[in-house]
C-alpha cells in the first residue's frame, strides 16, 4: 500500500468523526466546521508531501491531532447545541409574544364593544324610568336590569383599562359583562349567541394570560 493510499481513509475517518459531532447542529455551523477541517487536512497532507515526510509519520500526526482534539470537539458541540437551543427558544418566545399581542388587541376592541353595548343597554333600560308611556312593571324591570347594565358598564370600563395589568380579572369581568348584557335578550337570539362567543373569548384570554408568565419563566 502506498503512503498516499494509506492517508485517504484517514482523512475520511477524521471527516466522518466531524460529521458525527456536528450532527443536529445548524447546517451553516456544521458545514463551516467540516469545510475548515477538510481544508486543514488537505493542507497538512500537501505540506507533508512537499517536505517529503513519510506517510506513516504524517498519518500518526493527523491521528494524534484528531484524538487530542476530540474532547474540545465535544465541548464545542455542546456549546453550539446550547446556542442553537437558546436561539430556538427565543424564536418561540417571539412567536408567543406576537400571538399574545394579537390576542390583547382583539381583547381591547371587544372590551370596547362590550363597554359601549353595556352603556346602550343601561341608557335604554333606565329610560323606562322617565318614559311617560311605561307602566309600573316596565319601570321596575327596566330599572333593575338597567342598574345591572350600569354595573356591567363599570366593570367593562375598568376591565378595558386593566387588560394588560390584570388580564385574568379583566378577562373574567368582560366575560361576565358580555353574558349579562345579552343573555336576557331572548327575542334577539343571535345577540345572545354573540354575547356568549365574546364571553368565551374573554374566558380563553383570561386563562391564557394567566399561563403566560410561567411560560416566560420556563423559557
Amino acid at each position: 500500500m502506498t503512503a498516499r493510499a494509506a492517508r485517504e481513509p484517514l482523512t475520511s475517518a477524521v471527516l466522518a468523526w466531524c460529521d458525527w459531532y456536528t450532527r443536529g447542529l445548524p447546517d451553516d455551523v456544521a458545514s463551516q466546521r467540516r469545510d475548515e477541517l477538510a481544508s486543514d487536512l488537505h493542507d497538512h497532507r500537501t505540506d507533508a508531501r512537499l517536505r517529503g515526510e513519510p506517510g506513516g509519520r504524517h498519518a500518526r500526526a493527523v491521528t494524534v491531532r484528531a484524538i487530542l482534539g476530540a474532547p474540545a470537539d465535544l465541548s464545542w458541540r455542546s456549546y453550539q447545541l446550547r446556542i442553537a437551543r437558546s436561539a430556538r427558544r427565543q424564536e418561540e418566545n417571539m412567536s408567543a409574544t406576537s400571538s399574545r399581542d394579537g390576542r390583547t388587541t382583539v381583547a381591547y376592541v371587544l372590551g370596547g364593544v362590550v363597554a359601549a353595548w353595556s352603556a346602550v343597554v343601561a341608557v335604554g333600560l333606565l329610560y323606562n324610568l322617565v318614559a311617560p308611556d311605561r307602566n309600573d312593571q316596565d319601570r321596575v324591570w327596566g330599572a333593575s336590569i338597567g342598574l345591572v347594565a350600569v354595573v356591567c358598564l363599570g366593570l367593562a370600563v375598568w376591565s378595558v383599562t386593566a387588560l394588560t395589568r390584570h388580564p385574568r380579572a379583566a378577562g373574567a369581568s368582560l366575560a361576565v359583562a358580555s353574558v349579562v348584557t345579552t343573555v336576557w335578550m331572548t327575542w334577539f337570539l343571535w345577540l345572545a349567541a354573540v354575547g356568549a362567543l365574546v364571553a368565551a373569548f374573554f374566558v380563553v384570554y383570561a386563562v391564557r394570560s394567566s399561563r403566560a408568565p410561567r411560560e416566560a419563566v420556563l423559557a
Binding site: V14, R33, E36, L37, D40, H44, A61, V64, R65, A66, I67, L68, G69, A70, P71, A72, D73, L74, S75, W76
Partner: peptide, 13 residues
C-alpha cells in the same frame, strides 16, 4: 506537534 484540530478550531471560533 501541531495543535489538535478540535482545540485549534474551538479557540479560533
Amino acid at each position: 506537534g501541531l495543535t489538535a484540530h478540535g482545540t485549534l478550531y474551538k479557540a479560533l471560533g
